[in-house]
């Protein structure tokens, strides 16, 4: 199948609703933890090695044919924050709609039936990649990249950060993104053989806690 489908899936303009979410950057900016391109890069690095690794492994495991319901439950256990779980399901639902338009498949139809309120976004991403004929590494790259591109774009808006600086931060993270994608695929293969307990559970306490703080604000620019 066409490898270029990855470009369609990973495109920031793909109509899956990601632009409405900051990946925790809005809370971190308000708390004074992201103030510059350097602290944005550090935030993205931490998110990449925690939420990004987990999302990459979930997506890769879905491509490998691990039961989506089991992956969704594994995602729940690895996402304690109810605000983040709700956001992941909303994003999953929107992505599924776009994916079914792009790569119609019985598996995507079945997922929509099983999860009317949406499955966790990385699980949907993996099944979308699978429907598009992509491999587990493609899905892992896509999920890992999204874990940093979202906060970078959001911070440009939140801090009026120079977009060139934000792009520089993302470019410097590329070698680590390679390693995270490799680790994610390796873990996904183990999960396919041994069960979802083998998936990574890397977590960022401030991402989870910050998401709950953020969800309680009366006014915010981003949904999460």
């Amino acid at each position: 199948m066409a490898r270029a489908a990855l470009l369609v899936l990973a495109d920031g303009r793909f109509p899956a609703g990601g632009h409405a979410h900051s990946g925790g950057a809005e809370a971190a900016v308000k708390a004074g933890r992201i103030t510059s391109a350097a602290s944005l890069e550090d935030f993205c690095r931490g998110r990449l090695h925690t939420a990004g690794l987990v999302a990459g492994a979930l997506a890769a495991a879905a491509v490998l044919g691990v039961d989506p319901a089991e992956l969704d439950a594994a995602a729940d256990a690895r996402t304690p924050s109810p605000a983040l779980r709700a956001a992941a399901r909303r994003l999953g639902r929107q992505l599924l709609r776009a994916a079914r338009a792009g790569w119609p498949s019985p598996e995507l139809d079945a997922l929509a039936r099983e999860f009317p309120k949406g499955a966790h976004q990385p699980v949907v991403l993996g099944l979308a990649a699978r429907a598009a004929g992509l491999g587990p590494d493609d899905a892992a790259y896509c999920a890992a990249y999204e874990s940093v591109s979202g906060p970078a774009t959001a911070t440009v808006r939140l801090l009026s950060l120079d977009p060139f600086d934000a792009t520089g931060a993302l470019a410097r993270l590329a070698p680590e993104l390679d390693r995270v994608a490799d680790r994610a695929v390796e873990a996904a293969r183990r999960a396919a053989a041994e069960g979802t307990d083998a998936l990574p559970a890397a977590s960022g306490p401030l991402l989870e806690v910050g998401a709950q703080w953020h969800a309680a604000w009366p006014v915010r620019l981003f949904a999460s």
Partner: peptide, 25 residues
């Protein structure tokens, strides 16, 4: 059923960003 599964890595040699704004700040 697994209701919570969380791993935290910190200190020298831990994956990058552990002391940054997304993890421990």
């Amino acid at each position: 059923r697994t209701v919570l599964d969380q791993e935290l890595a910190s200190g020298p040699g831990a994956p990058g960003g552990w002391d940054g704004p997304a993890v421990l700040a």
